[in-house]
Simulated scan of single mutants.
Amino acid sequence: MARVIGILPNQEQVGGLIDSLRNAGFDRKDMIVSSLFKPFASRQEPEEIAYLKTERDELWQEGTGAYADFLTQYAGQGVAVAVEAPRHEVARIRTIMEQNGAAKIIQD
């Protein structure tokens, strides 16, 4: 499995991305949406970042440090949409994210 995270500059773009991902066959349970507009506390540990709109918290039980560090860099700059999917789907997810206005995309 792989995780792909896209940063969308506008909250209004999130619904379109989620709809596009769902129409492409990805399950909403495999997605996490986290607002980056709410400023992080300056002394907050990356592991304490609250992820919003997740239906499966276990997606982030292991290995959250790298993602939390990544998201901290973009605090105040949009909304993060993360998708967990088989590795062979990564290119398709990236394409969908790009088509829906993702300003930055990372994967593991």
Rank of each mutant, 00 (worst) to 15 (best):
N100S: 03
S35M: 07
L17K: 07
E89C: 14
D30C: 01
D30G: 04
T54I: 11
I5D: 11
M31T: 11
I7C: 06
G78Y: 06
F70W: 14
H88V: 07
L21C: 10
L71I: 14
A2C: 07
D108W: 09
V4R: 06
T64K: 10
Q107M: 06
S35C: 08
D69L: 10
E47N: 05
G63F: 04
I105K: 07
A66M: 02
S42K: 08
K29H: 02
L59E: 08
I96Y: 10
I5Q: 09
L36H: 02
Y51Q: 04
Q99I: 00
S35K: 06
Q107T: 09
L71D: 09
M1W: 00
T64E: 10
T95Q: 13
I96S: 05
A68C: 14
K104G: 00
R22H: 01
Y51S: 08
D108C: 00
R3C: 05
D30I: 00
I5E: 12
D19W: 00
D69C: 00
M1V: 04
A80E: 14
G15C: 02
N10T: 07
V81T: 13
Y74S: 02
P9G: 02
G76F: 10
I18P: 03
G63K: 09
R87W: 11
D57M: 10
L52V: 08
R92F: 01
Y74M: 04
N10W: 10
A68W: 07
P86V: 04
I5H: 14
P86T: 05
N10F: 13
Y51T: 06
A82C: 14
V79Y: 12
Q77R: 15
V33G: 03
I105Q: 04
A50I: 14
N100F: 02
I49E: 05
F26Y: 15
A68M: 13
A85P: 03
D19E: 08
L71Q: 14
M31I: 13
I93Y: 03
Y67M: 13
I18A: 12
A103R: 11
L71K: 14
E12V: 09
V33R: 02
R22D: 01
I32N: 03
V33N: 03
E58M: 10
V14K: 13
Y74F: 15
L59M: 15
A85I: 05
L17Q: 10
D27L: 09
F26E: 03
L71H: 13
D69S: 11
E45G: 01
I105E: 06
A50L: 12
D30K: 01
A41C: 00
E55T: 12
W60F: 15
A50N: 05
M31Q: 14
T72K: 15
A24D: 06
Y67H: 12
E98G: 12
R92H: 04
Q77T: 11
G63P: 03
G15R: 10
L59A: 10
L52T: 15
A85T: 13
A68Y: 07
